[in-house]
Design a protein around this nucleic acid. Structure first.
Length: 480
DNA sequence: ATGTCC
């Protein structure tokens, strides 16, 4: 029982010390307030401790306040390995490779959007296909795939689905290098062929929000944000394409573990040395899926941009991407390890990169402010924009939280919600128009199914991982 | 998250 091992290290930080009898090579660090701690499930604490046993793990594993139990690594977990002696673990990125969030600015104000929110909901449902297995309008040819693997979001921009500066405002410019299509494989290509530009299901969404609170006016000014402004937030990933990649390589890793004589306390943490054939090929396939996801969010954003331009009689050019973050991904990054700047392999699952001002990877404006950290809440309450701050580099491999975190399982939510229609009517009475492609989605995704996201961002702000910039409230929510 | 069991 790892909960008994927790010791307090700060106002909102806790540690499970490295324990050789359990094979832990490094401690596990947990960010949470004292009142949130009981709501963190035991299995999530076990998982973040198990991750600390992986070969080549460096410094500590990290759990964010929105942590909950996942496949292998908990959602809300960060784990980093040494690229020479360490492993890569597909379960530590998860099935939805490069699931992430982007947010687009508009010149529309709250009153304008609110007045036509019913129309907006209907138009967005048409513009952005959603639902399990749902295909879209873009049928991908082999040439498209080659370009997606190489250029990520740039593939969409090259096709006219976006502007050049959209790319500069994505984490990693919306593409990772070292993505070879052949490593993703034919089955993934088949599953992803008609899913480009689609939302998927579950907690994926497209949301019209208004800025209702600004905490840091200076940063908000630099980011072009003002109170009452309408923003569009999009949350989705690599669809069936990334799912297939994850499925195939998890199987590959089971064999690789035997081959390399690696043992792990949980087979869901199956892994291989990063420098092995299996490790390199997975990373290549994972990057290809990440690039597919960036292209997907780009296509969706441009569809929404086109629809809004039509509805409000404004220029598409008046709507620019503020930022796009990946919250399920594995990347080589430069961090200070034992007093030395070193390349390490950072695995983030349900955790957002949170690089501070001055980081050389950031575009110019974000070098001044720190990168935007996008934290969606639930569909009835609020979401947050934060800026990466310096302590994240010392404490959490430059990472912060990614959302509210579930409070109820889908099954529990379904039982408590009654019907999706009731949820929809309740939200509509509060000025929030919601629509979903799936029959059960609204009930499963009801606001009460989630923890209060403001408690989550309070923790990361108190810990100094990110600082508060703005709060947004939903106006129109499209669910998968 | 996911052609929610090849």
């Amino acid at each position: 029982m790892y909960r008994n091992k927790l010791r307090r290290t700060g106002e909102v930080s806790w540690e499970i010390p490295a324990d050789s009898t359990r094979g832990m090579l490094v401690p596990a660090k947990i960010f949470a307030s004292e009142e949130m701690l009981p709501s963190i499930d035991d299995s999530a604490l076990t998982q973040i401790s198990n991750a600390a046993t992986l070969p080549g793990v460096v410094l500590h594993t990290v759990a964010m306040p929105d942590i909950h139990s996942g496949y292998g690594l908990p959602i809300g977990g960060v784990m980093a390995t040494d690229p020479v002696t360490g492993v890569v673990s597909p379960g530590a990125a998860g099935y939805d490779i490069n699931c992430g969030v982007r947010i687009m600015r508009t010149p529309i104000n709250f009153a304008q959007a609110s007045a036509v929110r019913g129309t907006l909901a209907e138009r967005l449902m048409t513009a952005v296909p959603g639902g399990v297995g749902r295909g879209g309008v873009h049928e991908l040819e082999h040439d498209d795939y080659r370009n997606i693997a190489e250029h990520g979001a740039g593939w969409a921009v090259n096709k006219g689905l976006g502007f050049k500066d959209d790319l500069a405002n994505c984490e990693s410019n919306g593409r990772l290098e070292g993505a070879e299509l052949k490593h993703a494989g034919n089955h993934a290509m088949k599953r992803g062929r008609d899913q480009m530009g689609t939302l998927g299901s579950g907690n994926h969404f497209c949301e019209i929000q208004h800025v209702d609170e600004i905490y840091d006016q200076e940063v908000a000014d630099k980011w072009g944000l003002s109170k009452g402004q309408i923003l569009v937030m999009i949350h989705t990933g690599s669809r069936g394409f990334g799912h297939q990649v994850a499925t195939e390589y998890l199987e590959t890793m089971e064999h690789a573990m035997k081959k390399y004589g690696i043992t792990v306390p949980d087979r869901e943490l199956a892994c291989a040395p990063m420098e092995s054939e299996e490790g390199r090929e997975y990373l290549s396939a994972m990057r290809t899926a990440a690039n597919y996801a960036w292209a997907n969010r780009q296509v969706i954003m441009h569809s929404v941009r086109t629809a809004l331009a039509d509805i409000f009689h404004i220029e598409p050019e008046s709507m620019r991407l503020l930022y796009d973050v990946a919250h399920n991904i594995i990347k080589i990054e430069r961090h200070l390890v034992n007093g030395k700047q070193t390349n390490i392999l950072v695995h983030r699952k349900g955790a957002t990169r949170s690089f501070p001002a001055g980081n050389p990877e950031l575009a110019d404006v974000f070098k001044e402010t720190g990168q935007p950290v996008l934290v969606p809440g639930d569909m009835g309450r609020m979401s947050f924009l934060l800026a990466g701050s310096a302590k994240s580099m010392d404490e959490s491999f430059g990472s912060s939280c990614h959302g509210a975190g579930r409070r109820l399982s889908r099954h529990q939510a379904l039982k408590q919600a009654g019907s999706g229609k009731k949820i929809q009517e309740g939200l509509s009475a509060r000025g929030i128009e919601v629509r979903a492609a799936g029959r059960q989605t609204l009930a499963e995704e009801m606001p009460d199914a989630y923890k209060d996201v403001s408690q989550v961002v309070d923790v990361v702000a108190t810990a100094g991982l990110a600082k508060m910039v703005a709060r947004m409230r939903p106006v129109v929510v499209i669910k998968g």
